[in-house]
Simulated assay, not measured.
Amino acid sequence: MERELLLECQRNDRNAQRKVYEKMAGKLYAVCRRYLKNDEDIEEAMADSFYKIFTRINQLQNPDIFEAWARKIAVNECLQKLRTSRELHISLEEDHAFSAGSVSEQGSFEKDILSLLNFLPEGCRAIFNLFAIEGYPHKEIASMLSISEGTSKSQLNFARKRLQQLMVSHNI
């Protein structure tokens, strides 16, 4: 992100904020989509994320890490949404029905994998995203979700196994 654009955002310049929004909206939408299924929840998490980004941008000391900082805000908003809308249940028994037509046959491998994440239980999906995609260590995930490190590790293991099963059943 351009330093000057971020400085203008720090001065509450609405045009600069609009430009930052336009540059970041797609990236943050993808982050939110990995955690939340409901479009209304995604939109709410995005709106809350951008609100926090623009109201806290003065706290950003290094403009070079803006995108990572903004992604972290979006992840935290999604986790908060999961916690408040319905308890973030970590369960190995919860499973979601799926049909063979649910995954795009012509989509890219990455898109297919990301769409399969929707078939994981909420807790497993959140842990998989935090560990495999966002790169958080188990200790930090455990702290963020108020679970033990062992639970984080077992949920990640369950998510990986379930994704492998889904990939086989969908010929991915």
Results as ranks from 00 to 15, higher is better:
L28W: 05
D13W: 04
A97V: 14
G150N: 06
F119S: 10
N76I: 08
T55R: 12
E94T: 13
Q164Y: 12
S154G: 03
L82S: 01
Q155V: 06
I53S: 03
R33T: 12
R56N: 15
E77S: 07
A74I: 02
A70R: 00
S143K: 10
R56W: 07
R18P: 09
P121G: 01
F109N: 08
A126Y: 04
S154K: 08
L79Y: 06
L114S: 05
N38P: 02
I57Q: 01
R14Q: 14
I42A: 04
N76Y: 07
I73A: 05
G123A: 03
S152L: 06
G107N: 02
I90W: 12
S169D: 14
A45W: 00
Q10G: 11
I133S: 10
L163C: 08
Q80R: 14
I53K: 03
K81A: 07
K27N: 11
G107A: 07
K139M: 10
N15Y: 13
V31T: 14
R83A: 14
E93I: 10
M24T: 04
R56I: 07
A47E: 11
I73Y: 04
K52F: 04
C124V: 00
T84R: 15
S148N: 00
I113L: 15
A30H: 11
E77D: 07
A100N: 12
A159S: 01
I113C: 11
I90H: 11
F158H: 13
